[in-house]
Structure formats: structure tokens, C-alpha cells
């Protein structure tokens, strides 16, 4: 900001003065707005979980079988990667707030790196599944041919690719806005005293993590008790 914003003063009948909240420089407003945005994400993923639950109750065993065939090791590693990225993001914000801009930038870069690792592992996972013939559009997930999986598994994998795909899309967006944040920091627009953008992007990143906290068990773990599935694979 080139010139400081000075809030207006309203005067009541007794002559008392009240500060007027303008849209400029409204940190709490920025935070509130971003939380509201996150609620829309909650509703969106909530609706997808609703679909998932609906079909889970309809095709219980199919879901468990399909889940058992996912690669829990890679999924677990990704969970830990995301956990650490949430930490680096949080520490970055903390450093920004306490005035250590350089440290903050370092932490953001670390987060970006971890995000890329996450996507890399995801790619490995999807490729392996593709080679097993399980991917959107492949015959196993279409109806009425000799490779067709049962209904429940088709639905499970349909949702699996949709939801992890959408989650991955959020990660990509996250990388984008983190790069943008770095640019804003370099330009001096985000400073220890004016860091709402950093704050909100950290919130976004935590939300992406939060979604994974539910996506992961719902897809990877519900079939984990099915030892046969683990041993035989699919």
C-alpha cells in the first residue's frame, strides 16, 4: 500500500466517536471470507462422501474388495508427506508473523517440494493401476464386457479416481498459489505486518490436508482388514 488507509469516524448524538470499519484493511473480513470459501469446499466434498456412503451401503463387499486392492504403502507415505507439508506451511506462517521473511520463504519452498513429491507418488500409483487395467475409461470399469468388474467395484473406482483426482487438482492449485505468494512476498506486498494472504493460503493448504484425512481411510483402509485381499492382491 502506497498510502495508509485511515478509517472514518462516525459521531453519535452524544458526540461520541465510533470507528467505521471500511472494506480496506479488514484482516478479519479477509479471514472470514476465506473460511466461508472453505465451507463451500466442505459441502462439495461432503456431497461426494454422501455418494460414497450411499454406494458403500448398497455394495458393501464389493467396496471392501476394491479397497483391499489399493496400494496402502504408497497411500500411507503420501499421508505422511502431506502431514509434513502442513507443518512446513504452518512454520512458514509463524516465521512470517515473527518477522523472519527469509525463513518463511524457505518454508514455502519446502511445502512446494513436498507437494510435488505427493503428486509424484500419486502418479506412480495411478500408473500402476492403469497397468493393471483399472482406470477410468478402461474396459474393466465399463459395463457389460468380459472384463467388467462388479457394480460395486466400478462405482468404487469411479469415485476413487474422481475424488483423489479432484484432491490432486487442489494440490496443483495450491502449488500455483504458493508460487504466487512467493512473488507477492518478493514484491513486498506480503509483510510480517500484512500477511493475510499468507494466512489464507496456509488455511487452504490445511484444508487440502483435512480432506485427505478423510479420503485416505475411506478408500485405502476400509478393506485393510480383509487379509485375503492383501495377500492375493488383485
Amino acid at each position: 500500500m502506497s498510502h495508509e488507509y485511515v478509517p472514518e469516524i462516525a459521531v453519535d448524538r452524544e458526540g461520541k466517536e465510533h470507528e467505521v470499519q471500511g472494506w480496506q484493511d479488514d484482516t478479519y473480513g479477509g479471514k472470514l471470507g476465506f473460511w466461508l470459501f472453505m465451507f463451500t469446499e466442505v459441502m462439495m466434498f461432503g456431497a461426494m462422501f454422501l455418494i460414497l456412503t450411499y454406494y458403500f451401503s448398497l455394495h458393501h463387499q464389493d467396496f471392501i474388495n476394491a479397497s483391499a486392492s489399493l496400494n496402502r504403502v504408497l497411500g500411507g507415505v503420501n499421508t505422511v508427506v502431506l502431514l509434513f507439508s502442513a507443518l512446513t506451511m504452518g512454520l512458514g506462517l509463524l516465521k512470517m508473523r515473527s518477522g523472519d521473511v527469509k525463513g518463511a520463504k524457505l518454508m514455502i519452498w519446502a511445502t512446494i517440494l513436498l507437494a510435488i513429491v505427493f503428486l509424484g507418488i500419486k502418479a506412480v500409483e495411478w500408473t500402476a493401476e492403469y497397468q493393471h487395467g483399472v482406470f477410468l475409461g478402461l474396459e474393466a470399469l465399463q459395463a457389460g464386457n468380459e472384463f467388467s468388474k462388479p457394480f460395486g467395484e466400478i462405482l468404487f473406482f469411479g469415485m476413487y479416481f474422481t475424488m483423489t483426482g479432484l484432491h490432486g487438482f487442489h494440490i496443483i492449485i495450491g502449488i500455483g498459489i504458493m508460487l504466487w505468494l512467493l512473488k507477492r512476498i518478493n514484491a513486498g506486498k506480503v509483510t510480517p505486518h500484512h500477511h493475510i494472504l499468507h494466512f489464507n493460503i496456509a488455511l487452504y493448504w490445511d484444508l487440502v490436508h483435512l480432506i485427505w484425512v478423510f479420503v485416505f481411510p475411506y478408500f485405502y483402509m476400509i478393506g485393510a482388514g480383509d487379509i485375503a485381499g492383501v495377500v492375493n492382491g488383485h
Binding site: 462439495m44 461432503g46 455418494i51 477410468l136 462388479p150 469411479g158 469415485m159 479416481f161
Partner: peptide
């Protein structure tokens, strides 16, 4: 609105990839 947003996205994905969520021939 997000609920219908995701529903429309699923319908689009259905048309492109056949994920099966709303298609009775796939359950």
C-alpha cells in the same frame, strides 16, 4: 450451490469417462 456444482461435475465426468455414478447400466 457447491452440492449441485459437484453433481454437475460428476455428470460431466460421467459423459467423458463413464465413471458410472449416475448410470444404471454400471450400477
Amino acid at each position: 450451490t457447491p452440492v449441485v456444482g459437484i453433481t454437475l461435475i460428476l455428470a460431466i465426468l460421467e459423459k467423458f469417462f463413464g465413471i458410472g455414478i449416475f448410470d444404471p447400466s454400471k450400477g
